[in-house]
Design a binder for these strands. Structure first.
Length: 119
DNA sequence: ATCTTGACCTAAT
DNA sequence: CATTAGGCCAAGA
């Protein structure tokens, strides 16, 4: 891995770690947060690599519609949903219930960008 | 080296 | 509402 990628992956991990329990974010939102708005796909790659490590809540990242498109990359098919359920999030047919209100996107929500500056 | 495939997204049509 | 084009770039069926 070269320096660019290392920085990118690391930034992704730092941002994903900031997603609060009971909330979710999206690949695109994380990409914007790390300053690479067109690299949503790479966020998926980073999360894929993150499974080797722990303490990175990859299950809190879903696609822009609130679908659990990454579920096949967890060790069990239902692990992603189970983890979300255990944090109080309801999922029906791979769709996060009440997605609009659970979305964590600091660049689009004033309160949350404030929280981001503090951390 | 070249080509394809993705945990994706936005903008334009 | 749907479809498409383009961008991103690591890994390798």
């Amino acid at each position: 891995m070269n320096h660019h990628q290392h920085d990118f992956f690391d930034k992704v991990y730092q941002m994903v770690k900031l997603i609060p329990k009971g909330r979710v974010s999206t690949y695109g939102a994380i990409a914007r947060l790390v300053g690479s708005p067109q690299s949503a796909r790479m966020v998926g790659w980073a999360l894929n690599a993150s499974h080797k490590q722990s303490d990175i809540p990859a299950h809190r990242v879903v696609n822009r519609h609130g679908l659990l498109t990454g579920k096949h990359h967890f060790k069990d098919l239902n692990e992603m949903q189970h983890l979300l359920n255990s944090e109080g999030i309801q999922v029906i047919d791979d769709q996060i219930v009440n997605f609009e209100n659970l979305l964590w996107d600091p660049l689009k929500n004033k309160d949350e960008s404030q929280r981001l500056l503090i951390s």
